[in-house]
Structure formats: C-alpha cells, structure tokens
C-alpha cells in the first residue's frame, strides 16, 4: 500500500473495464469483481498503480475485467508471478485472484510458500468447490461424496482447509468472505490490502452451473461469532472446528513483510569487475 492517490477519488465503476465477462449468469465471481473495484475505490487507488494477477480458471479471468494492469498467467502460478512483480516493483499494489483448483491444487506449493514468505500481497481465492472451466470436476475443497464424471460416487477424500493451512504456513491476515455480500466482501478485501504482508481472503463464491446447491450458501453463512485474534494457534483451533460458513476477519498478525531492498545499490556493473581482475 505505497500508492499515493493523485487527483480526485475514483468511483468503483472507474475500475471496471468495458470487456464483458465470460462467466455464467448468477456466478458469484461477478460480485467479487464488484467487491474488487469497490475496495480499490475505497482505498483511493489509481488503476495504473494496481496490478491484478491471476492464474487459470473462471475466477482467474478477473484481471481483464478491471481497468488496472492485469496479468493472466499460467495455471497455479499466480502467486509466484505476483511475488516477482511486487518484489521488483514494491511501489505497486498487487492483488492476486485465484480459485480453489488453481490456488489449492496445482498451485498448492506456492500457496504454502507465499504465506511463509509474507510478501505484501492480497490473495483472493474464489472458492466454489469445483473446477468450473473444465465443466465440473472435484477440487481440493469438494466434499468427498460429490458425484462427478471424473470421480463417480465422489472422491472419498477429505477436504482441504485452506484457512488453517494459511495460518500454519504463516499468512499474516486470514479472512473468509461471501460473494453474496459484495459490500461486506469489499470491506474485507480493503482491510486485507491495508494490512502489510501476505493477506489471504477466501471467498465463498457459488458456482450455480455445476454446484446449484451452493445457492443455499446465502442462508448458511453468518458473521463469525468471534473477534479477530492475533494468535494464530487460537485462530487455527477455531477454524478447525467451524463449519466453513463463518464470515469475517479471522486472524490478523503483525509480521514484517518480506521485501529485500531494490533500487538502493548505486554501483555500476564495471565496479564489480575488480573481483575477477588479477
């Protein structure tokens, strides 16, 4: 959050591009897009100073739907590209968008190390418990008995608990949001962006096409009945036993972000030759 606002504050609309999303009608990701732009406006940012980085999947289409600088990379590697960008350009505000397949399956290793490395990034995962772009396969957060062509009768595998894993790996900010509440989600994203270090926001974002039962989430979510803690162990204990429907900021730490200096050294390359010269 090094961006200095210039000129008049922009509206959320000013952060939206004129490019029409490919998402299905009713997709939770539309709301997340509007929460992104609301958060950017709320933080008084300029589109040119924000980079939205993503991997592959429905949710990862989001960069081009904003008016910010976007980076739509390869499957699972958004956090790596974003870390490279932020470390090379600490002046930019970098937000990373992902989904449960992109972020927790193929990108799982980068998720662990991004939490651990604690670069000042905001990582937003739109979790719908399914691979949507490939038309309905189970992801790491899919329930074990969910039937699909690829896993008839269900995978039988326990689900991945991204928030607990983020805590264990060292994320500095952990929150859960619900796409059905775009204003509340915008608040959480803005708070994540304000918090230095690696901030992780898991957003329950229904896939009405392959998981129509997720329409029920609206009735199931509730504000987390606890205040955010600075104790990661405590936050993890709470999350191990919740039903995945508690919404809000669940952990906020104060770890110093990882940002090795760049642009400080003033030597000329020829100054380094002395090391080789006889």
């Amino acid at each position: 959050m090094n961006t200095v606002a210039a000129a008049a504050p922009l509206t959320a609309q000013a952060f939206k591009s004129d490019y029409k999303p490919i998402w299905c009608p009713g997709c939770g990701d539309y709301s997340v897009l509007s929460s992104f732009t609301k958060a950017f406006a709320k933080l008084n940012l300029r589109p040119e100073n924000v980079a939205v980085v993503s991997g592959i999947g429905c949710s990862s289409r989001i960069p081009a739907y904003t008016n910010c600088y976007g980076f739509h990379g390869v499957h699972g590697r958004s956090l790596a590209a974003a870390a490279g960008l932020k470390l090379a350009r600490p002046d930019l505000t970098v937000v990373v968008a992902s989904g449960d397949g992109d972020g927790y399956s193929i990108g799982g290793n980068h998720f662990l190390h991004a939490c651990r490395r604690n670069v000042d990034l905001t990582y937003v995962v739109m979790d719908n418990h399914v691979y949507g772009m490939t038309k309905g396969q189970p992801s790491p957060t899919t329930e074990p008995d969910w039937d699909s062509k690829l896993s008839p009768g269900g995978t039988g595998l326990r689900t991945f608990n991204p928030l607990v894993i983020a805590l264990a790996a060292g994320a500095n900010f952990v929150a859960r949001a619900f796409a059905g509440d775009p204003n509340g989600t915008a608040e959480i994203i803005a708070e994540a962006m304000r918090t230095p270090g690696f901030s992780f926001v898991e957003i329950l974002s229904p896939c009405v096409t392959f998981r129509p039962e997720q329409r029920e989430w609206k009735q199931m979510v509730r504000p987390a009945p606890v205040t955010p803690t600075e104790d990661a162990a405590r936050a993890a204990r709470r999350l191990m036993s919740d039903d995945g429907m508690n919404i809000g900021v669940l952990f906020k730490g104060d770890r110093k972000p990882y940002q090795p200096p760049i642009g400080k050294g003033k030597k000329h390359p020829s100054d380094l030759e002395a090391e080789f010269a006889l």
Binding site: A51, V53, F71, G73, V74, G76, R77, L79, A80, A81, A82, A83, G84, L85, K86, L87, A88, R89, L92, N109, H110, L112, H113
Partner: peptide
C-alpha cells in the same frame, strides 16, 4: 520454492 516459481517470478518482475 521451485523452478515453477522461479520462472514465473521473473516473468512477473519483467512484466513490472
């Protein structure tokens, strides 16, 4: 953390 990360990091940095 691995070569997948290292190469994507340099793509990100260079994009910047």
């Amino acid at each position: 953390e691995d070569e997948l990360a290292s190469v994507n990091m340099i793509v990100g940095a260079s994009y910047g």
